[in-house]
Computed example of a mutant assay.
Amino acid sequence: MTIVCYSLAGISIALLALLSSQTRKVDRVTISTKVARRKDVEMLTYIATFLVPFLTVAADSWRKQVALGIFVALIALFYTQGEMYFWNPILGIFGYRTIEIELVTEEVVTLITKSRYIKPGATVKAVPLASQVYWEIAP
């Protein structure tokens, strides 16, 4: 199990580097902000309420291992179905934050950025990753 966790972490870091290098080649769009709110605080709440309690569970029997596996599978399902895949702890380790931005068009989008703060009325150059998810890449 430890090897699987280390492998997943290594793959995540490699894919982040690959994505970062490839997005530099993609045309950026300009986002005009109206209001910006940090969204990554929600990730800390998520980790504290769901994952931390299960780190202390001893999976010393097959029943506990199955129960823990089902729990992790459900969390993964909710994580992807709720489009929370961009709340990746690896991004946090590399200094990225998620910020919810209300655009001047009233549309609400998520921006993955290294910026600590986005001023109201600011314009941001970003790469679209998914529907309503953008990544601000440093020039």
Rank of each mutant, 00 (worst) to 15 (best):
R97H: 11
A126G: 04
E136M: 04
M84P: 06
I3M: 15
L91M: 06
A73E: 06
R116H: 14
S115F: 09
I118H: 00
G121H: 15
I137P: 05
I13C: 04
R38N: 01
Q65E: 04
I101L: 08
K125P: 13
F50K: 02
P53L: 06
A59N: 14
A9D: 11
C5W: 14
A14T: 14
G10T: 06
I93L: 15
M1I: 15
G92Q: 04
A58H: 15
K114A: 04
Q65P: 01
T56Y: 10
F54V: 08
L129D: 02
L74Y: 04
V127N: 06
K25P: 12
K25S: 12
A122D: 04
D40P: 06
P128T: 08
T45A: 12
T49D: 09
G121Y: 08
F71N: 01
E100V: 11
N88I: 08
L103S: 00
P89H: 03
E100R: 03
T56S: 13
S7M: 13
L77Y: 15
L68K: 05
M1V: 14
I118Q: 01
T98G: 03
Y85H: 10
L129H: 01
N88L: 06
L77I: 11
I11Q: 01
W62H: 13
V57P: 05
T33L: 06
I75T: 10
V133G: 07
M84T: 09
V35N: 12
V109H: 06
V108W: 02
T113E: 01
E102N: 01
D60H: 13
V124L: 02
V66I: 15
V127W: 02
I3P: 05
T23K: 03
A73L: 07
L91P: 03
S12G: 02
A138D: 15
R28Q: 15
R63S: 14
L77V: 11
A138S: 15
A17D: 12
V124E: 07
G95A: 02
L16S: 08
P128R: 05
V57E: 04
E100G: 06
D40R: 00
A59H: 14
S12Q: 00
V35R: 11
I99T: 04
L19Y: 04
T123H: 13
A130W: 08
F50T: 09
W87V: 09
F54Y: 02
Q132C: 07
T2N: 12
R28H: 08
L15R: 14
F78L: 15
L16A: 05
R63T: 13
D27R: 09
Y46H: 06
L15H: 12
V35F: 07
I93M: 02
T80V: 12
I90P: 00
P53I: 01
W62K: 08
I13Y: 07
I70T: 09
I137W: 03
V72N: 12
K119T: 15
